[in-house]
């Protein structure tokens, strides 16, 4: 087994774990942060799949913008609850 494949395997495990946590975390803010982590791991996976274009877009849009939208929605719902 090459070193690269071991890295891929670890990355794959981290992706599945972070996706699972983002769906199962009991606190919503933690779930959203885990989703942002998942997005950044996805960007790494795109780099490993020799798709730097998608990696760039995923890091900026998938993790950054989606994360900001989700956190903002969470904050607004929280403020309204209070």
């Amino acid at each position: 087994m090459s070193l690269e494949f071991i890295f891929d395997l670890l990355l794959a495990l981290a992706m599945v774990w972070s996706a699972w946590r983002s769906l199962s975390a009991s606190r919503l803010d933690r779930a959203i942060v885990m989703f942002i982590v998942f997005g950044l791991l996805m960007a790494l996976a795109w780099a490993r799949l020799s798709a730097p274009d998608i990696g760039l877009a995923e890091a900026a849009i998938g993790a950054g913008l989606t994360g900001a939208l989700l956190l903002d929605a969470y904050g607004a719902l929280k403020r309204r609850e209070a």
Partner: peptide
Amino acid sequence: RPGGAFQAGAVLAAAAV
């Protein structure tokens, strides 16, 4: 090279946010 309208638009949007 890697880059283009999508990524550029995303960076612009990030600056605005």
